[in-house]
Each structure stands twice: as C-alpha cells, then as structure tokens.
Design a protein around this nucleic acid. Structure first.
Lengths: 207, 207
DNA sequence: GTCTATATTCCGATAGAC
DNA sequence: GTCTATCGGAATATAGAC
C-alpha cells in the first residue's frame, strides 16, 4: 500500500489577497507532471505511464481527464499561457530596465530547474503534433514577441535602451537568444547561459 | 516485386577534381534518411521502420549496419560533422563579410528544406540520449562557436565588424539567433527567419 | 548482406466493475 | 473517479535461413 499523503502535492492558492495552503486536484497534478516531462524530455519521450508512476494513479485514470495525449498537451499549453499571463499581471515594473531584466529572469528560473520553456519544448516536436497545437503555440509566441517588443519600445522612448532593429525584430533577436541558449547550455558549459543573458543587457542598455 | 532501381539514390562523388555520378551504398542511404527524419521529426519520433519504408529494405537489414539506434545517431552526427568540415574547407572566402554571410547561408539552406540543424535536433532530445551523444555534440558545438568566433574576430580586426561582446560570446549570440529562429519560423510567419538573418548582419557590419 | 520470423517491451486507448 | 483487464499496434532488437 502506497502512502497516499506523499502523492498529494501542496500548492499555494491566492484568494482575495490571502494565501492558502491546499492540495492539488488530480487533474492539476497530471498537468503539472506533464509540464515537467514535456519541458525536460520532450513530447514524444514521455508516456501516461510516466505520469501515472509519478502521482500514484493508473494510466486509465489519466485518460478519464485527458482522453488523448493531444488533449493533455493542449491543457498543458493553455495552463502555462494562463499562468504566465497572471504572473506578469502581478509584476508591476517601475521602469523598462526592470521589465527587461524581469523577462530574462523568467528564462533564468526555467534554466535553473534544468527545463526549457514550453515554447522551446513544443516547437521541437511541432511536426509530430496536431495542427491545433501549432495554432495555439503560434498565438502564444506572437504574444511573447508583443510583450517583449512593448518593453523595448517603451524603454527606447524613455531613453533607456538603444538598438538598431524595430522593436518587434529586436524582441525576436532576444527571444531566440534565450530559447536556444537554454538548450545549448545543457550540453556545453552552463556559464554560456549567463554570458548570453548578460550580453543581452549590455548590448541594449544605454550607459 | 519492387522496382529496385527506384530505391537507389544517386549521389555525386568528387575524386581528384572530377565529378562522378554514382549510387549510394546502403549504409549511406540509411544515414541520409536518418538525417532527414532526425532534423524534421526528432530523434524520438522516427523508427527503423520509417527508414525501412523509405529505402526499401527490412528493418533487420538496418540493424545489420547499426545494431542499436544509438549507433545510428552517432553515425549521423559524425557524418554531418565530417561533411560540414569538408564543405567549409572548400569555401575560400575572400573576406570576413562573405564568411559571415556564408555561415548564415548554411542555416538558410537548412531552413529552406524545412529542416533544423542536427545541433538543434539532437539538443532537443539530449535528456533522452546516451551520454556519448552529448559528448560528441558538445565538441561539435564548441567547434561551431570557434569557427564563428574566428570570423568575427578577424572581421573586427579588419575594421569590417563592430560589436561589444568578446568574439566567442558574440558567436554565441548569433548562433542562438539562428538555431532558435529556424524552429520558431516553422510555427509563426516564415519571414521571421529572414528578419533575424538580416538583422544579424545589420547589427554587426560597419557601414 | 538481406530476408523471414519472432521475442519483448511499451504505448495510447477502451470496456466495464466498483 | 479510480480501478482491473485487455486490445491493437508499434518499437527495438535478435536468431537463423538463404
């Protein structure tokens, strides 16, 4: 008999500015584990059995919540998009230098967990996934570019940043730096991640 | 009975500055197909059966040449590294501006085939591959950084390029731009690839 | 060197009891 | 909502005939 208590995952819940400690619903546990597998091993290298073992339920129970693997991946993607939106709404950056550093820190946090972003993870398997995923991912990436481009644009107008490209293309340059260095620094020296992260700031901030 | 002639793949062979048209050996056909699958679908989303169907032999015959999938991936990696080395030896760039554009064109060529580089492909699956692959890939990436850094360094000394970073970190910035935009532009607008490729040049070349 | 045949394991998915 | 049981298929890999 397994220890059921250990299988329960604790989460914090924020309601009306009060923080509650509570247990995750099964559905949320599944999504959480799926995110970990997708962002470490990739979409085609994890199975319902992997999740099953991790949270102590049978694979058929996972199929109850997510009939197909595609359903699960869609749920993962929408969960991450939603959470990302909420996190950013909470952050109220006083200036665009902080906002840019905050954006980079999002990637630092992922890297520290030896993961890659969900964008990088799903992009790698895009030719094996349903068109639906591609459509959602496309929207998500465009929103990421918009978000970063707005920071760059405001920062430029406030005389904090200087760069040659348009805000959107500069956003693309920075986003691609971060997405790829997350991968590369898992194979080569880890310090390369910090080198790139630092250089992004150096290249763009006015001294 | 299948048409055996159709299964034969034609290749050009360069011997003593003479170009010969000849047939590929089975072993080379397998590697060639494996490269296509790995750089389009990923390491964990293709099987011996896929290659088998493509070149018209049984999976057991593939196992004759490459007993395990790891053996095949190692062969793919070493083949690509070797070919890349030869290609670059043939190119004799008159100046470092051409050399940088030539480097970017290597990625353009891959993108035009709707593939990603072998580095990007294997990096995505690194946590599911044997340590041996990681070691070879590490060397390969370091050589790529060295190659690009040397172009940047020479170009800077020839007063053609200007950039703030060290040559090696600048090489990392450009390499990550190219690796990630290859992926992203398969999901979003294809034009993003050209936008980034153009911006790399704009940002670094002295006018 | 290529084949047939097969072993083993795993995967996504479903039916039906509780 | 979770379980047992099972299906159909696919994957990697091997043995042995030709």
């Amino acid at each position: 008999m397994e220890n059921l208590f250990e299988q329960k995952k604790l989460i914090y819940l924020l309601v009306d500015r009060n923080l509650y400690l509570c247990f995750m619903e099964t559905k949320e546990k599944i999504v959480t584990e799926a995110i970990t597998f997708i962002t470490t091993r990739g979409t085609n290298a994890f199975s319902y059995k992997d999740i099953s073992k991790e949270i102590g339920i049978k694979t058929s129970s996972i199929h109850y919540y997510f009939p197909t693997k595609n359903d699960l991946i869609v749920a993962v993607l929408e969960h991450v998009i939603q959470k990302n939106k909420e996190d950013r709404k909470r952050n109220n950056y006083s200036n665009m230098k902080s906002a840019l550093r905050g954006y980079i820190d999002e990637h630092v946090l992922i890297r520290e967990q030896n993961k890659v972003s969900v964008i990088a993870a799903l992009a790698a398997d895009i030719n094996t996934l349903e068109p639906q995923i591609k459509a959602i991912l496309n929207n998500y990436i465009e929103e990421e570019i918009d978000y970063l481009a707005q920071i760059l644009n405001k920062g430029e107008k406030e005389n904090l940043f200087v760069y040659k490209a348009t805000p959107r293309i500069q956003a693309l340059m920075i986003l691609t730096n971060l997405l790829a260095i997350s991968r590369i620094s898992m194979i080569t020296k880890e310090i390369y991640f910090e080198d790139v992260a630092r250089q992004i700031i150096i290249d763009i901030e006015k001294k």
